[in-house]
């Protein structure tokens, strides 16, 4: 769907394009079978992050096309997850915050065994390298979450929409 975004004055990208939400993943008969194991797949990881709220729009990252299923890669056997996200505009100052929200959501939702890699889709942001470095640094992520203001914003992004 294409429509108008919110227009309160100070937004950087006041009128973003809005994309369609993918529906709930349909439950298959296999998933309902008690015995058969279901591997963690790309769609499952995508489902974890697609409903994260954008810090400045009343929209989800999926609706803004910041995250896409094709940019999510998981290898269940080797316990690795890689997520690329695409800021709506190349100078988006929220990029780090969005990356942090994705990272925190995955940390909270995935088993310990996984090694997480959250980074910006190559070539889509002016300070791509700096943001990626921050997101990859465990200590800096931990320190960021000690900051109660930052934690508040991240939690808001992760709260279920009322």
């Amino acid at each position: 769907m294409v429509g108008a975004g919110p227009g309160a004055a100070p937004l950087e990208n006041a009128n973003p394009l809005i994309y369609r939400r993918s529906g709930e993943r349909p439950v298959t008969a296999r998933e309902e079978d008690d015995e058969l194991p279901d591997a963690i797949d790309d769609r499952e990881i995508f489902d974890l992050i697609r409903s994260i709220n954008d810090p400045e729009h009343p929209l989800t990252l999926e609706e803004l096309n910041v995250v896409e299923q094709v940019r999510v890669k998981v290898n269940d056997a080797e316990s690795t997850v890689s997520v690329e996200f695409t800021p709506t505009i190349p100078h988006c100052s929220m990029a780090t915050l969005i990356g942090l929200s994705i990272k925190v959501k995955l940390l909270r939702s995935l088993p310990d065994r996984f090694k997480l890699d959250v980074h910006i889709t190559p070539g889509t942001h002016a300070s791509e390298h700096a943001v990626n470095k921050q997101l990859a640094d465990k200590e800096r992520v931990a320190a960021a979450l000690e900051n109660s203001h930052l934690l508040e914003v991240v939690n808001q992004c992760l709260s279920a929409r009322s």
């Binding site: 998933e31 909270r108 088993p111 934690l151 939690n155 279920a160």
Partner: peptide
């Protein structure tokens, strides 16, 4: 979170996420 069934993991994610938010700002 590491349950073999996807439907279980989904509920675990929802529950754990909400517990993380308890008493936390935002």
């Amino acid at each position: 979170l590491d349950d073999k069934k996807r439907l279980v993991r989904k509920e675990a994610v929802a529950a754990r996420g909400e517990w993380f938010l308890l008493g936390s700002p935002g």
